[in-house]
Amino acid sequence: MALVPYEEGRALQDLRRPTATYRFAGRNVRIQQDWERHGVAAVVWDAAVVLSAYLEMGGIDLRDRSVIELGAGTGLLGIVATLL
């Protein structure tokens, strides 16, 4: 189970920022976002961040595996899987 903090009035504010930066697998990952031009597929969603964190914790062994990411927005999850 994951808990995503929610603040009244800020629900979509982070999705409208031009970039989102995360740290996974000892690397900084900076994603460009553009909600206004490309909509929901062009932002990093909380679900991608939570699943990336789960993968980093070693929940699934990705060594010598092929991974396909479908419908995960900007591709953060695929990037993290590659780094791991």
Rank of each mutant, 00 (worst) to 15 (best):
G26P: 02
A20I: 03
A47W: 06
R27E: 14
Q13C: 05
A81D: 03
I31A: 08
F24I: 05
L83P: 01
R16K: 15
A48P: 01
V50F: 09
G75A: 07
A81R: 00
W35S: 02
M1G: 10
A72L: 09
R37Q: 15
A25P: 01
D46S: 13
V67K: 06
R37M: 14
A41V: 10
G75N: 12
I31P: 05
Q33P: 01
V50L: 12
H38I: 06
L77M: 08
L83T: 03
V43R: 01
R23V: 11
S66T: 12
A2T: 07
Q33C: 02
A20M: 15
E8Y: 11
A11G: 01
L55M: 10
V4A: 12
G59P: 04
S52R: 04
Q13P: 00
A2M: 07
P18D: 07
D14L: 12
P18V: 09
Q13D: 10
T21N: 02
E7G: 04
H38D: 13
F24W: 05
G73Q: 03
G58A: 08
S52D: 07
H38V: 09
R17Q: 15
Y6Q: 10
L55S: 06
V29G: 04
G71C: 10
L12S: 07
L84G: 02
V40R: 06
G71Q: 11
V50W: 08
W35V: 01
Q13G: 02
D14Y: 08
G78T: 05
L51F: 13
Q13S: 14
S66W: 09
A53V: 06
R37F: 07
S66I: 12
Y6F: 14
A20F: 13
E8R: 14
D64M: 12
G9A: 07
E69T: 10
P5V: 02
V44G: 01
L3K: 08
Y6G: 04
G58F: 11
A81G: 01
A2H: 14
I31L: 15
G71S: 09
I68E: 13
L3P: 00
A41P: 00
H38M: 09
L70K: 12
T82K: 13
V43C: 02
S66D: 12
L12F: 14
